[in-house]
Nucleic acid binder design. Sequence first.
DNA 1: CATGATTATGATATAATTGTAACTGATACA
DNA 2: TGTATCAGTTACAATTATATCATAATCATG
Lengths: 223, 223
Amino acid sequence: MYRIFIVEDGGTIARVMAEELSGWGLDACRAADFSNIMSEFAALNPHLVLLDLALPFRSGFYWCSEIRKSSKVPVIFLSSAADNMNMVTALHQGADDFIAKPFDLQVLVAKVQAMLRRSYDFTSPSEIVQHRGALLDKDAATLQYDNQKIELTRNEFLILALLLDNKGKVVQRETIMRRLWDDENFIDDNTLTVNVTRLRKKLEKAGLDDFIETKKGLGYCVK
Amino acid sequence: MYRIFIVEDGGTIARVMAEELSGWGLDACRAADFSNIMSEFAALNPHLVLLDLALPFRSGFYWCSEIRKSSKVPVIFLSSAADNMNMVTALHQGADDFIAKPFDLQVLVAKVQAMLRRSYDFTSPSEIVQHRGALLDKDAATLQYDNQKIELTRNEFLILALLLDNKGKVVQRETIMRRLWDDENFIDDNTLTVNVTRLRKKLEKAGLDDFIETKKGLGYCVK
DNA sequence: CATGATTATGATATAATTGTAACTGATACA
DNA sequence: TGTATCAGTTACAATTATATCATAATCATG
């Protein structure tokens, strides 16, 4: 999860930004002590910095150059004084972009995402679901547990992914069936049972007993 | 020397931009045939693209997504229609920045320099991907391993590049097929298999066994 | 146009995966 | 106690996805 460091004096704006970014799966963290940005920066070690130009104590320019002394982290300036001179100065100082205030939240998010993509190179991390110490990598289609790698077949993977996406909820057998065999073909209802059995066998072999619970008459459940 | 590809219809603006960038030690090259941007792009193989949104024949959005099919080169949009929606669309499409017209030449240069710095200085210099000691040079389309140079054909190279760009993730066969043959012609599904086989044979001959894993029913994976 | 390299195709092989069927066990309830 | 329902198990068969190979078509290059 990417950490975003928000250095912005305006309390409301900072809060709104943080909320919006959090909504997009980013870990947004606001600066608290504007006299001592660097120690917060070091503690957080963020993947990207959003830096207001006008700050108490020291200007954004100052902090940007401080950051650049020890880090190549992407820095995006925010300012209502987005004139050409300030922009050029900021960019020359090692900043990566300059967003004029007021800005559209959508644009902010898009810019942050674009910069993260560019800076941390396109291979975005896999989406991973975790449960009881078992890690299901939804992109690699593998399950890891207790330092073992459990290979899953297509059906096993789909079933497990579906159950973990609905952790704590009962998933109807029919729902699973429609996912695996996009409907139609009268697949024997028992076929699902067999697939679940096989999946359970692999889980148990790895030490994950009772991972998938049967709710008779309702469906399956992981919790 | 960094090559900048300027795709801008306005003759005067384009010329001025090119002169300014040249003055800063950049190799600025203007698009000539707006119906066929991609071949000029391929010929120049630029380090950065400045892309006007409003172009004859096809829009900048179109060319941006075409470029992104085969390249991660930084793309900066230029447009007088710099409204929020266009900006968000562009960024989501893989663009890196969006400059409103008219712009200050100083700002343009500063942005270009900042983007080049971010894209080439900070991260790995050339387009080289590494895995298990094998180096894939995406410019030369060759693979180096254990002091051997492995020559790859177009198809072999594209497959390997795609898999390495998604290291650790399963890539669906269909995804690969669309990359290799931009669909249309119903290429025999088996043709992909054959190409993978040939690629594997080269890899094995060089000592790279089990480089490409088959996830039956899901796709291929390098990890 | 001739040459060799590259790529596509079709036939066939192979092995992992999946589906089926027959049986078992459990639970509910008439 | 008997019967019906539902899910689990197992072994086996069928299917499917992928691999391999030989051959034909295509492409690039001089």
